[in-house]
Design a protein around this nucleic acid. Structure first.
Lengths: 185, 185
DNA sequence: AGCGACATGTAAGCGGTTACATGATTCT
DNA sequence: AGAATCATGTAACCGCTTACATGTCGCT
């Protein structure tokens, strides 16, 4: 389960509360894995049950108490093991391809509009990705070079992916324009 | 919900049982949307509740009875509407990018092996896609040209996607090889 | 004798989302 | 006065998967 292991990954860096984790998710891995607060809290319970993390209460004044989780020995072992174990390719699930597939009764213009709207959505996604890669947040100090380059790689993956899709969309829009029109209707 | 609408798409072509639908899913859209039998039966119940499909029992001898579903008027309206309504981009969820992101404590060799194994998985996926595009199953007769070309487009999307990922993988493997090694360990 | 095609479903569980609930402090 | 930040969770639901259950016919 990537969520649990992502949490372990963060805890391996430093102890955190569920709240801290949420912020870290949003800041660093939201591009390829988002998590809701409630989901994170559930996962933390699970991690504690499995003995991969432990929590301790840190009382605070004026603010709610912190329930800080830290990774355990077995947690580190598990994390290291998971990190080098290839994940199976999950089932592809692209609803909009279903639309395209069954669009033979739509007009060429309707299909083009559908593809065009997807193109715009992808373009804005690509734009925000490009912005986040050009603003290197965080202190790029001493030992971080390695982690930083891996982080960049994940961003580059996203960009390559979106750019490939845009190229396909352009070509698909061209093809749809020259499709034989429907007879009936 | 793409599953329900995919079923409507098939029923719009001709009346079918859950069993027939499963076969059609496996044959034609499995590349981008797979469905289990149990899931299809549930969705058919739903469709009937919503009035988008109706069933009738066709007794058979020697074989189990067929419960054949056909699309209704409102079902057709719904399908046409859904087909031209852009879907929101779903959350990206790539577990293996989580692995890459947290791999800064793995050795360069371990990271390369991970990417390499993904490369092989993608290559076999691409190969089967290429095979299915070169064996044009089904009668390519008169009115099918339009539907057939849309089907081809979906396959081309898959191929473009996998090829882009392979290109990225090659480049990523190169980069990882030249990463500064870990100090500690 | 055993497997695959034909045909229908139920039940349990899992990963994830959305909505709800609470409450002090600090900044605008 | 109102919003944002800090901080924790529960409950309900949803889409989907996996496992289970049943039974005939025809082919090898």
């Amino acid at each position: 389960m990537p969520l649990e292991h992502a949490i372990l990954g963060f805890l391996n860096f430093q102890p955190m509360t569920g709240y801290d984790l949420k912020k870290n998710f949003d800041r660093s891995v939201a591009n390829f894995w988002s998590a809701t607060q409630s989901h994170i809290y559930k996962a933390l319970d699970e991690l504690e049950k499995k003995g991969w993390a432990e929590s301790r209460l840190i009382p605070q004044e004026g603010k709610p108490n912190r329930k800080e989780y830290h990774i355990t020995g077995p947690g580190r072992v598990e994390l290291r093991h998971w990190l080098v174990t290839p994940l199976p390719l999950p089932q592809v699930r692209e609803g909009w391809l279903i639309q395209l597939f069954f669009s033979h009764e739509s007009s060429n213009e309707e299909i083009t509009a559908l593809l065009q709207s997807r193109k715009e959505a992808i373009q804005t996604k690509l734009k925000t990705l490009k912005e986040s890669v050009s603003t290197p947040k965080g202190t790029e100090s001493n030992g971080l070079a390695r982690a930083h380059r891996l982080w960049r790689l994940t961003l580059e993956y996203g960009m390559a992916y979106y750019e490939a899709e845009l190229a396909w969309l352009d070509q698909a829009i061209e093809q749809v324009r020259s499709l034989p029109q429907l007879e009936n209707k």
